[in-house]
């Protein structure tokens, strides 16, 4: 047994399997960052820091000595708590297929969105610099006219090409912008979504937590999400009516090539 303490929960193996399955289905759609950046690991819950390969000078302990200290990026832990009704779990054991797992759904969305925000916009408290914070190119303003998005995305792609950053490229798009892009057609009837995909050569990703949009190169090795413990389902406590569970992960994120992305602001 590990620190997730699953065997202490009043949950049968079949119910755990059902909960795992439900989370897997619900959490994949909003996990936008993992669809666009490299994923390294999982390296285990014990993995505590990412090696940055750099040092900082420190005072040497005596004459004739030189000293440096290795620099690392500590992994951050993210956890989203939720409860499941014990009566729902009992109904599952009776064969019920329509479990009320709304709190699980909300927790999955919270932790996925937090991961997206950390990757794309940063998480200062955890020492994570996001893609839009690190990007060296000038942000491009999207404006309100969705029909003009292809022009702005093409400009972003041109900026990346000019910097020697090859494609294909992907687009992380906040939920509002995503819906508008799917619904809008340009003059001539071309759907904006299809036009953007032609420009990018890669996916357009629905990205809860992203403000505006971000164009990134998908060539690899530019952005690394390093996982310690990948998203896992653990047990906290229970009472007569509910079981308290949580989703948890540990990770760091670093931008290796700040010129491999362009931010598009609202």
């Amino acid at each position: 047994m590990n620190h997730l303490l699953r065997s202490h929960a009043p949950i049968t193996d079949d119910a755990w399997a059902e909960l795992d399955r439900e989370v897997q289905q619900r959490i994949v759609p909003p996990l936008a960052a993992r669809k666009l950046v490299d994923f390294a690991g999982p390296k285990g819950w014990e993995h505590s820091a990412t090696n940055l390969g750099r040092v900082s000078p420190v005072d040497a302990p005596g004459d004739g000595l030189f000293a440096h200290q290795r620099r690392v990026l500590p992994l951050a832990e993210l956890r989203a708590d939720f409860t499941v009704s014990r009566s729902e779990l009992l109904d599952f054991s009776r064969g019920a297929a329509d479990l009320d797992l709304g709190a699980l759904d909300a927790a999955a969305r919270r932790i996925a969105e937090a991961e997206n925000v950390a990757v794309f916009h940063g998480w200062a408290a955890a020492g994570i610099v996001g893609i839009t914070e690190a990007a060296t190119s000038e942000p491009i303003e999207l404006g309100a006219d969705v029909a003009k998005y292809p022009r702005h995305v093409a400009k972003a792609v041109e900026t990346l090409l000019s910097a020697g950053i090859s494609g294909p490229y992907g687009l992380a798009l906040g939920p509002e912008g995503y819906t508008e892009v799917v619904e809008t057609t340009e003059h001539g009837g071309l759907i904006v979504f299809d036009h953007l995909r032609e420009i990018l050569g890669g996916p357009i990703v629905w990205a809860p937590g992203v403000v505006g949009a971000v164009v990134v190169s998908l060539r690899g090795d530019d952005f690394v999400l390093e996982s310690g413990q990948d998203l896992s389902l653990g047990y906290d406590h229970h009472d007569a009516s509910t079981v308290s569970l949580y989703l948890e992960e540990s990770f760091s994120f670093r931008v290796v090539s700040p010129d491999a992305a362009v931010a598009l602001t609202p």
């Binding site: 047994m1 590990n2 997730l4 699953r6 795992d20 989370v23 897997q24 959490i27 994949v28 996990l31 993992r34 669809k35 666009l36 950046v37 490299d38 994923f39 999982p42 390296k43 285990g44 819950w45 014990e46 993995h47 992907g170 890669g202 996916p203 990703v205 998908l218 996982s227 413990q229 990948d230 998203l231 896992s232 389902l233 653990g234």
Partner: peptide, 19 residues
Amino acid sequence: AGGDFSGALGIGSLKAVAP
């Protein structure tokens, strides 16, 4: 040599799965 991964959801990278 490593960790206990029971409880992990096996999500990992989704880079190749994106539409």
